[in-house]
Structures are given as C-alpha cells and as structure tokens.
Design a protein around this nucleic acid. Structure first.
Lengths: 260, 260
DNA sequence: GCAAAAGTGTTTCGTCTACACCCATGA
DNA sequence: TCATGGGTGTAGACGAAACACTTTTGC
C-alpha cells in the first residue's frame, strides 16, 4: 500500500510536502459506482439514475456515491444499493454484491480527481422496484438499449456484463438473480438471458442437479405454476459457491455476440 | 462515479461543505500495491521490499506507492513495477500486469485514510533480478515461506495467488511466467508450480497444442537443452488470451491445499 | 383434445485419463 | 549403456449433445 517507498525517483512529495499531512497533497475523491442487474421479461436490465447535478446533468448514470470517512468501499456500495433499490438494509444485505474493478483515469470526472471502485450487484426480478426517497429517478433499463451514459459508466457496465457472463460458467452466481425459491426453468432463463443462447432443458437440468451444492430441492414442496404446463419443483440456492463440473456455455462463437 | 447522488440521506456533504472544493472534505490517499510473482526453482516467489519508514518500519511489504495527480492506477503500477524490478520502462511494458482489487478498510493504514488498488504482475524467471536504485531492498521470497507482512499485504498476496491459480485454467496467462521462447516442459512447470500438482506430460502437451493461439512453434528452430535428455522444441506465446477448451486442473480437492 | 411446460431415457460422440512405448541427448 | 527429459500412440472411462418420449397442467 502507500507511503512506503524509499527508493530514488520518489513518487510522492513531488510537490515537496510531507505525505503525512492529510491535506498536504492533492486530494483524491473516492467513490463507488454500482452496476445493479436483474432479469426481467427474459432481458437483462441495469439500474440507472438520472443525474441532477451538473457534469452530465440530465444524463443517465449508475447509482453511486462517496465513501464515507469511516466506511470501506464495500459498506458504501451496500449502503447505496439499499438506498437505490428501496430495500431495507437487511434485505439489501442478502443481495449479491461484488467488487468489479477500480476506475482511475485522471480525466474521468471533469471537476476533480475522482477514483471510483466499481461494484456489481445482482437482484432477483422484483416486480417493479424503484428508488428510495426519490421514487422515480431510478429506472431499470435493458442492457440492449442503453442511453448515453455519464462518465465512463458505459465501460463499467460492459465490464460488469463480461464478468457476470464468465462467472455463470463456474460459480453458482445465477441463483442470485432468482427469488429465494425458484424452478429450474427460471434458473435456465437466467443463463439463457445472460448468455444470449438457448440451452437444452434436459441437459441443463442434469448438469445443475449433478453439481453438488448448486441447488437443493424444497422438500415436500408445493409446486408452482408458471401459467400453463406441468407445475415445476421448487429449489433454493445451495451452499456451494463454485461449480464442479463447470456449466460451460455452448458454441465458441468467434467473439462478438453483443446482441441483446 | 462520484458526486452524482441527489437522493435523501446524502453521503457527501455530511460535513456541510460543498464537494466541489477539492480540499473541503477529508482527503483519501490513493496508492497502488503490487504482487509481483515469478517461478524460480519450481517454486512460486513474490517480490517483497523492506520498509524503511515508520508504520511497520523494518517489516516486509509489497512494492507500491502513490498514484500521481495525472496518472491512472495502471500507469502508477507500471511505473512501480519498472522501478522495483530494475527493468527499463520498455521491458516492464511487456510484463503481464493486471488489476486485482481495491482495498479500502478505513483502518488498514494507521496514519490516515489510504485506499489502495492492488495489482498482480507476472515476470519470467529472471536469473537474479533486483531493485532499481536501492539494489538490495527488494527480494524474491517463496510464497510458502512468507514473513510477517505490513498492512494487509498478506491478504493481497493470498488474493493474487487465488486469481492466478484460477486464470491459468482458462487463459494463456502461464506464458507470462516464461521467457520469450520456451519449451512445453517449462510451461508445464509453471502450471505444476502454481497449482501444486503434477501433470501428465503427454496429456499436457496435447491440450496446449490443441488450444488455438496458446503457443506457436518457433519454426526451423534450434532446440534447447535443459541439461540431459532430448532437446525440446521451442515455442513462443500465441495471440490468444483465453483458452478453449480450458485446461482444467486435476482433482477437485476439498478446498485447502495451501502447501507450497 | 391440444398446447405448453416439466421431467426421463437413451444413443452417440468427443474429450480427458492413464499408461505403454519410442526418441535423442549427456555422462 | 543408462538415466533423463521430449514426444507419440492408444484403450477405456467419463461427460456432454441431441433428441425421442412421457407427465401434468390450463384452456
């Protein structure tokens, strides 16, 4: 970490001041930005807010905000997540939240030096969730129809999508998109939506059930109907976090595949 | 990113000042920390430096330092990497360097609020590389015999090792540990060292050669001897970055496997 | 009965594993 | 000629893909 170099060509102190005085060097603002995803109507959506303040005022942006003096980045992200989804702290604590990467381009904010820690959150397909205090400023937007975004937020969303795509293969992440109890059909929809492919249901079923700890049946359970068709058995997320064997996505398409 | 929230329960301005004044809020120092790995004598080593300054003075730590006002984190990490390995900027530019994650515990540095962006770097097994200006303050240390480390650097190293282990499976990362031209035996050693397992040579060879773009033969090449035995064909890193199919590590051991 | 969704079975095919075996070199 | 590491071949186990088929519901 910082303040521990003593070789030649010193990085700090290039303004001649000692680095031990908190106000001596040019300060950095440190924020968190959240890419909150959900699956609705077989499409991947991301939560956007409309900016009120000036740089990019009126533009869409990711929710986020400052890290407080006594907060770690994860706490700040969790706090923002609760505020922006309108959930209680307790409900938000159960959501999947993971650090993505940090964005530090010196020009990413025109006002001053702002370093932002990006987070990815996954929420179940709540019927119509909206923001906390300000009810209408947050909105689910299909990732295939993103507007122009403030700052480098388009990049953050792209990075987050790529991360999610990859992690579905070898982790149990997909259950984070599902409500506490779900059917294998719903779970499959998550995969198909995020990957943009169709999967063979019998094979999908076998692979999921063969992965120890991925899902566990809700025993003696009522069976939920999704309209027509045979009622499906319910499952809940298991205890495993990684998948063995992995659930590989089909066809190694050349690269592209950005359609949504 | 920052400065763009306008809902209730504002994060910024909790001290009543406008966030647009760079010196108005409690400043964060932002640094980079580098976990630089190499494979030497069939063991994974990490580059450590001995601290001269006071928090943890005399203790071992990861190389790192401040991000300069006009620098992004990646540039800062690359600069530190060049300084600490003693390589030129050009040589260091060819090394594998990737962002790991950001560490932001408010108490991770006793002096002040320091947020650090961790990076992982992979270097070939240079014979005896050492630091830049200060020749002896940097040292390769086997990851199986780490001393007490300053700050949260032990955690950073653990995270970095885990990342490397995972990425060997599905990326071409292993070639970053190898010199520009290498034999398949050397490449296999990288895998065996990082994973701590023995691999079947015939199968390893087949899998590597079957992964398009992983390695490409150095045509009409001289064959290098590693002492005794048949000289091996030379390869260089291919153009691919991801591996299809993946090179899965054998046996799904319960979890642990920290031995080294 | 028909459509729709859940769930089972089976055949086929490719991949990975394990291991036997040959090749080229230094001592 | 023996030890050492590079390289090839192959039989069997395993897992995945493809698809036919049955079950249970709403209309």
């Amino acid at each position: 970490m910082g303040l521990h170099r003593s070789t030649a060509g010193e990085a700090m102190n290039e303004n001649g001041r000692t680095p031990y005085d908190p106000h001596a060097f040019e300060p950095f603002a440190v924020t968190v930005d959240l890419a909150v995803f959900t699956v609705r109507e077989s499409r991947l959506h991301v939560l956007l807010i409309r900016r009120g303040q000036d740089p990019y005022a009126g533009a869409w942006a990711l929710p986020g905000g400052f890290i407080l003096p006594r907060e770690c980045a994860e706490d700040a992200a969790r706090r923002e997540l609760a505020e922006e989804t309108g959930l209680s702290q307790e409900s938000a604590a159960a959501l999947h939240l993971e650090q993505l990467r940090t964005y530090s381009d010196p020009d990413r904010d025109p006002r001053m030096r702002v370093v932002s820690v990006g987070y990815t959150a996954l929420v179940p397909g709540l019927p119509e969730p909206r923001g906390g205090g300000d009810a209408a400023h947050a909105q689910w937007t299909p990732v295939g129809a993103l507007p122009e975004l403030a700052f480098d937020h388009a990049r953050i969303i792209a990075d987050a999508r790529e991360r999610i795509r990859a992690k579905l293969e070898y982790t149990c992440l997909a259950t984070a998109f599902c409500p506490p109890e779900f059917t294998l059909g719903e779970l499959q929809q998550v995969y198909e939506t995020v990957w943009g492919v169709e999967l063979d249901r019998p094979n999908f079923r076998r692979k999921v059930l063969a992965s120890p700890g991925f899902v566990e049946p809700v025993e003696g359970a009522p069976r939920r109907t999704g309209g027509r068709g045979k009622p499906a058995a319910l499952y809940r997320a298991g205890t495993a976090t990684t998948l063995h064997p992995a659930l590989l996505r089909p066809e190694r398409r050349s690269e592209g595949e950005r359609s949504e």
